[in-house]
Amino acid sequence: MLISKIELNQICVDLENTRVIDQLTLAINQGEFVAILGANGTGKTTLLKVILGLLPMAHGSIAMNSDNVGYVPQRLPLQGGVPISVMEYVSTGLRVKKVNSFWINKTESKLIQQALKTVGLFDIKNSNLFNLSGGQQRRVMIARALVSNPDILLLDEPTAGIDSDSQESLKEVLDAYKKNLKTIILVTHELEVLEPLVDRVVVLGTNTKGSVIYDGKLPIPKHLYSIAHHSHEDSINSKSILGLDNS
């Protein structure tokens, strides 16, 4: 089994000529479940996308000892209205070769069905993805990320906008995944249900250009409470987000 380790060394990221991440250094070990928290605009999603290679760095380096990475984006991208079955959607998470048959073969079909069983959605494998509930869609997105059995899983707000049953289901899936010594990096506003799984929390500061203001275990020190307060004034219980309920 590959030992996944991610090292971010003094990375700087500019978006539209504005520095959004400045001199960020972070090391994540194999099997760790790391939650990245912070107010809106602190660069959480940007950081995730830089790790994934989707955004360029102005400076710094990232070392990962596995390129088998699974990614669960924040939401489904906009679609032109063409229906996509759950099986088809999950198939897009499979590693493709230079030349692939357009049709899914038996081995691939088994992998897809296994991933759907993992998230408890095998029964709706032939349904149109766009007719599912938000919670089901999120679980299908996770199945797609898991279908290639990645060593590192990166999730962007996986619990946002989904019901409590789906959140519990997500927790079970991630718990099982973590037990296989896989690395999980989570960007979230809503730690709540996933809190027991998290090994370490990294908080990005406001007005600090995406630099780390806390890196450690839960609960987070009370003086950082305001960070969360800025980010969720509208809808979310900040105390539970930062694990302060348990402190």
């Binding site: 984006p73 991208p77 996509i84 897009t92 030349v99």
Partner: peptide
Amino acid sequence: IWGRQMFAVGVDTDVARVL
């Protein structure tokens, strides 16, 4: 030859790039 890739890119360009 490339239909699978074209479909994956159409579904989600970011995830396709990660892969």
